[in-house]
Design a protein around this nucleic acid. Structure first.
Lengths: 340, 340
DNA sequence: TCAATTTACGAAATCGATTTCGGGAGTGTA
DNA sequence: TACACTCCCGAAATCGATTTCGTAAATTGA
């Protein structure tokens, strides 16, 4: 079929061992032989078979990205993350394999792990339950959770600083004079939600503002679900003058709800989102948000995973990356800010 | 290390051949033995090694997606496509491997192909030059080009109907009474550009409107580059009353340029984009566009590729998929349409 | 000059599965 | 009884590389 190492060895009347060693930079090969091998390898168009290599080396130089989300709802997020991840991976010759909705049952996840198709896994999950972490540790497979903190102390993760980002948003709103600030929360109490919600509460507390339960409404997990949450807030007898949406897509929904009510952003209601996705910059007005260093998160996840692949006995690596407040016109009525 | 087929065979005092055959449904294994093998396989937590399988079967059950674009600029596009693709791939137990910016030089592409890490390739390239197609054919590797037509007669591709989509846009604008319609074109004359541009010209011709060269301006290849193109159009002595942007991101730029001039959309200038990306729905007003069946394109690409993997001597498969006009408020002044 | 190293290479094992081929045991038929 | 045929199973080759270990030849040192 294709050119194998044996074709080279036959042509040069050398053993396959010598050819392999010549190609892989071993020292016990003479200069002359090496040049000869390199030359005919190029001439014949030889490239090593990944399968044979993988089998022998017990390593694939591939990293699995496991999603249990539909990509549709995190396309911007995903795209930026993957850019950072692939850039980091390719510096060491690794490639990324996508597993979408494949780790949803523990069984299929175990199968995935034991097939050893990849050297390690990056989990892009909304929530990684403890029993999954236990299973991963039990299988002794290198892994890292991307984008969110994990409760389990033995799990490695790379996450944005949701708490401080949220706090900055709150301080921004409070500095603008807002005292009635609505918050849209999520049904499931993951770490991400917890951090942002705590930031909301602490932001109020630090400013000496009491917490009004009415201003906290729950959205569904689905994207584009912030519409009703925003309406619910606007329907209050004493409605908020600012809304802190859990993330940018929720903010976009809220934007629509606010506009439909005939209210002006930010004059009647200020609006902030979270995550810093592209879409939040395209609305009118663009929405103030906290941008995550997504490419950096992708990059760090890969670097962390590579460390664990090299030595999985390392203590867990857990990193919180700083986020950046992006002030846009949804909170600033006058002289538009210069941020994107 | 992990459980191998030999562990099972030793435990049951059977040969590895019998175990393998039992697991793979060969007929020359007795019912009793099969049950025994299946049972202990599950008990021991056996899963076949992908590398060993791949080597022996000369097949990986993996499909490579090769991008030479930065994903950043096509995140929405990519996400939808990949959803359709992974869904189609997983029905036959295939996974998708990402190769980003790896096929940019013919050398690295050849290396990729000869490593046989995947069974076939889906190319998501702006332009697939003839010499690359020749090389792919020469290597006899199954491949399909996603999202655009390819000039080479032997290439397989799945593409949206850019021409008819463009024609529908033009007819829509012309029905609204527009006679001066601007068009933003691209520097490189790929098929996609050609089709949309031809639709623009034919749309005018069919309506008996003569083509005004001033109304055709060129943008850079970079995204967010439609801003200057739009300004250039608006600066004309006899500016257009409608702008046909080459794709949605260009339209978003144009949107910004128009708003900055203090002009109203659609009253002063109507605006249409192309592709049907999410972002075009979030502007104010939302932008009329032609939506590509992205998930379907992803799905069809995989199905086509799988056919070619099964038999690469098949004649080339080339499919044009229908697109859908999405009328939004950027062209309809009154009573907002109900489409998303 | 002779022993001790170094240098350069090859034989063979190995990674973990799949698959071909051959044959013993059991059953059926003349 | 002899022969043909299934039914099951195992031995061994194979996929294509990597790597260990041994050794002949060349080089060095005393």
């Amino acid at each position: 079929m294709s050119v194998t190492i044996e074709d080279i060895s036959k042509k040069l009347k050398l053993s396959t061992s010598t050819v392999s060693k010549a190609l892989n930079g071993y020292k016990d090969v003479s200069e002359k032989t090496r040049d000869l091998v390199m030359g005919t390898a190029k001439e014949l168009g030889y490239h090593p078979s990944a399968a044979a290599r993988n089998l022998r080396r017990q390593r694939t130089d591939k990293i699995g990205f496991v999603f249990n989300n539909s990509l549709m709802y995190i396309s911007d997020y995903f795209a930026e993350v993957i850019v950072g991840a692939t850039a980091a991976a390719e510096t060491v010759g690794n490639n990324i394999v996508l597993y979408i909705n494949e780790g949803d049952s523990p069984d299929s996840l175990i199968q995935l792990i034991r097939a050893r198709e990849v050297d390690g896994f990056v989990f892009v999950w909304n929530h990684v339950p403890a029993h999954i972490v236990d299973m991963l540790l039990d299988e002794n497979v290198p892994f890292v959770v991307l984008g969110r903190r994990v409760g389990h102390p033995q799990a490695s993760w790379i996450a944005p600083d949701n708490y401080n980002g949220g706090l900055e948003l709150m301080q921004h709103l409070i500095n603008l004079g807002h005292t009635r600030i609505g918050f849209t929360t999520r049904p499931s109490m993951g770490r991400t939600n917890e951090d942002r919600f705590n930031a909301y509460k602490d932001g109020l507390i630090q400013a000496g503002i009491s917490i009004d339960r009415d201003l906290i409404v729950e959205t569904k997990l689905e994207p584009f679900s912030g519409y009703h949450a925003a309406k619910q807030l606007l329907d209050l007898n004493d409605p908020p003058t600012a809304i802190f949406a859990f993330h940018d897509y929720v903010a976009i929904d809220a934007h629509q709800a606010i506009v439909e009510r005939g209210l002006k952003i930010p004059d009647d209601v200020a609006l902030v989102g979270f995550d810093g996705l592209n879409v939040s910059a395209f609305t009118t007005p663009p929405i103030t948000t906290v941008s995550q260093p997504l490419a950096e998160i992708g990059r760090e996840s890969i670097l962390t995973l590579l460390k664990r692949i090299a030595n999985n006995d390392l203590p867990p690596i857990q990193k919180t990356l700083p986020v950046e407040l992006k002030i846009r016109r949804s909170t600033q009525p006058e002289k538009s800010s210069n941020s994107t």
